[in-house]
């Protein structure tokens, strides 16, 4: 078990180091998030709608688009110089490899989540109510999203269409995340009690668990030669 975790962490650490040295994905995702926040401000007339009413939908969509930007490149760097072959030849089980990739993607994603909360909080002058619970909601949703996204980014980078295909494969599958995520965030922004978002959080958790298990089980067929 501890070997498994070591292997998992080795994969995640490798990706994080690459990311830390290049700051390629985080940089792009962060800039995207901030710019979308600014554009939404221009796109919305605050005299017609109150920002709190639509902020949750905007945040979730921003996170998903930004995440797509970063997830799409999960396997690009390794695919370019054939490094993925090398990773696959190591004695790391495929599911540990997948979960390691998910972990590194998730940490990157969480940086974007924090940034998005900051950007939207400031630009829309949002009152987060209970920021910890909002953060928990976003993190749960992001976990499920990252798991499905990592699996299909492996699929899409194996195709000739590459990242163009990713949203088409991913969006229909992400409907539960969007529905439960936005509705939970919506209620939290409206200062509703915690008991009202209990069900949504459970469903987000269920989605994340199912995605992790299914992804770990199916990943081997995606990278198999």
């Amino acid at each position: 078990m501890s070997l498994y975790l070591t292997q998992l962490w080795a994969v995640a650490w490798k990706d994080l180091v690459v990311e830390f040295r290049s700051r390629e994905r985080v940089g792009a995702m962060a800039a995207f998030t901030a710019l979308v926040g600014i554009l939404f401000n221009f796109a919305i007339d605050p005299t017609v709608v109150r920002p709190e009413q639509i902020a949750s939908g905007l945040i979730w969509l921003t996170l998903i688009f930004a995440g797509m930007l970063g997830l799409g490149r999960t396997f690009e760097i390794e695919a370019q110089d054939g490094a993925l072959q090398g990773v696959l030849m190591t004695p790391i089980p495929r599911d540990a490899l997948f979960l390691g990739k998910v972990l590194s993607n998730y940490l990157i994603m969480m940086a974007v989540v924090l940034l998005a909360m900051g950007v939207f909080g400031v630009l829309f002058a949002l009152d987060w109510g209970n920021p910890a619970v909002v953060l928990a909601t976003l993190s749960l949703g992001a976990l499920g999203f990252t798991a499905v996204g990592t699996l299909f980014s492996a699929v899409s980078s194996g195709t000739a269409m590459g990242g163009t295909l990713l949203p088409i494969l991913l969006f229909p599958l992400l409907v539960p995340v969007v529905i439960y995520g936005t509705s939970a965030t919506n209620r939290l922004l409206a200062d509703r009690p915690l008991s009202e978002v209990d069900g949504q959080l459970r469903m987000l958790g269920a989605f994340a668990l199912v995605s992790l298990f299914v992804g770990a089980g199916l990943f081997r067929y995606v990278v198999e030669e």
């Binding site: 599958l173 539960p176 469903m203 199912v210």
Partner: peptide, 12 residues
Amino acid sequence: VGSLDIPLIHVS
């Protein structure tokens, strides 16, 4: 993945 996701989509 789609067929496993369908129950979740349906419920949501």
